[in-house]
Design a protein around this nucleic acid. Sequence first.
DNA 1: CTGAGTGCAAACTTTTTGCAGCATG
DNA 2: CATGCTGCAAAAAGTTTGCACTCAG
Lengths: 148, 148
Amino acid sequence: MDIPKELRDSGLKATLPRVRILQLFQDGQHKHMSADEVYLLLHREPSDIGLATVYRVLMQLVDARILVRNQFESPVAVFELNQGGLHDHLVCTSCGQLEEFCDDALEHRQEEVARKLGFALREHSLSLYGTCVRCASEAGPSPKIRRS
Amino acid sequence: MDIPKELRDSGLKATLPRVRILQLFQDGQHKHMSADEVYLLLHREPSDIGLATVYRVLMQLVDARILVRNQFESPVAVFELNQGGLHDHLVCTSCGQLEEFCDDALEHRQEEVARKLGFALREHSLSLYGTCVRCASEAGPSPKIRRS
DNA sequence: CTGAGTGCAAACTTTTTGCAGCATG
DNA sequence: CATGCTGCAAAAAGTTTGCACTCAG
């Protein structure tokens, strides 16, 4: 899809930082990125886009519903394309591998629980933490995630 | 339960900061607290417990499985007593009201999904966001949560 | 008594903001 | 060419750490 157009359709000027950042997400190389990771990727080739701009652009893209912000366990926010559905995550606590999934039964049951408690459900965030096959089979996988 | 004993059973000396902090949680007045809230509550009566100590104690209590750390939408970590089960949350995005629940069907289904994707599930974090009855009925409820 | 624990202040990390200049539409 | 956007640097906000002193066991 034409990125400048997509931006303009959302009421944003198609400036270089915005185009480059959105491109990073659409390239699909890295589906989940923190502001910092975006900044580093941008600067793999010379660029003078500032970190503050990265934060501003990410926020605008979230407001424009182009991206979604996730706040897994750590205090760093992580962004990804808003692909409707697919907002649930399964994180390997050994290697950090991240799987996405969308399960209708789960979504359904959540609706039900919320209704039972008198809430109108608007959003949800479900993250499962465990060990992926690869790490489970290895003897002592080095924990890259957090010390907690 | 005897708080000093509970601490010693976990291998922690029963020091004043630890006792007072754990007391705050067991009093049940505030089930969910950030480090900052704990610090403020402690200082409602004169006290020289430092914020750094609050953070250290909270971390130790989490390590000791007495507390659980939650990272809802915002970047602030929120702590609560580890009551086994009951780890899911329903947050009203208008007034901030927080309901806890535990739904076997959901837990079960999560296990299943994880297994299907080849993961050994260890933990999960589910947060539902919506509008509670009270806020839904009011005209324009003031959003106290965050602007995102 | 003695090491674990503490208070304070300073460092760190992540994110936000103020402002003067730049570039898009 | 006007305003929205940007880069930089500085400030916030949340959390962690270094160090000398204190207190629980």
